[in-house]
Design a protein around this nucleic acid. Structure first.
Lengths: 135, 135
DNA sequence: CTTGAACTTGACGTTAACGTTAATGGTAAA
DNA sequence: TTTACCATTAACGTTAACGTCAAGTTCAAG
């Protein structure tokens, strides 16, 4: 039991719809640390798969791979010392603040875009009204 | 009156804490279209300044300069024809959906991070408790 | 045991988003 | 008008995040 199923590099690539090159690159810069088979081929555990998932989410929302690595190391190393725990909590709270700030900005952007749409729709309905008056 | 105050390239750069190179680059790729002085030097109006602001907000949240240019052109050209208005509204709604989706994802990320923090804090307080038991 | 697909490590290529430098021209103050 | 600074274009340099290719290795199927 608990044979912790492993994925090959191409299985993982197919699953996330990326190339194997990307995965190797992520290993190069320290985002992943897969195990190896006897022959030296990469074997990815579920944990590595989850990491990769994290990377993609981070990427999609403006974080650089460097920042992502920091955050992954933060939440991945399972700190046990008291000092380490406190530092992690502190750093984590800061990161949460960053994310919150991004959320607020995006909400701001959205509401501005919505205002544009409202204005355009008003213009459009005025056009329709004018057309009717000629009829 | 209404002397529509103008900014030089370095004034603008200082204001946004970027280099003049960046501003010239943004003009190169069509994000800005400043006026020129007699001698050929760039003069930026308030409108251009506002555009730049938009660019930075877009950048900060994962949009490429290409996407940003599309969005700026969209909301900047003040469409007047009925067809054009309808297209703009349609495209705008799509963009709003994209932004909304990003917001939701970020909220998801945040709540996961918060969960980590909660767990770490629990661990920390257990450590404190154990320490007390020894006292 | 062979074959072919999948894998490995280099190493060089590419694109976006600027940085940097050079050679030159414009401008405001003394 | 000269000084000092700010501006211009053109061109080459840089970094992140991969793409692509070559030359060889491992693995699973028959």
């Amino acid at each position: 039991m608990s044979q912790t199923e492993m994925y090959s590099i191409s299985e993982l690539a197919r699953h996330f719809e990326i190339t194997t090159r990307t995965i190797r690159y992520y290993e190069e810069i320290g985002l992943l640390t897969p195990h190896r088979s006897e022959g030296g081929q990469r074997l990815f555990s579920k944990k590595e798969k989850a990491r990769l998932q994290l990377v993609f989410r981070g990427k999609k929302y403006g974080f650089s791979l460097d920042e992502i690595r920091d955050m992954i190391q933060l939440f991945d190393q399972d700190p046990s010392g008291r000092q380490q725990l406190e530092r992690t909590i502190q750093y984590g709270k800061e990161k949460i603040e960053e994310v919150s700030s991004r959320i607020e900005d995006l909400i701001q952007i959205r509401s501005e875009m919505e205002q544009y749409i409202v204005d355009f729709q008003k213009k459009l309905s005025e056009l329709e009204r004018d057309k009717d008056e000629y009829a």
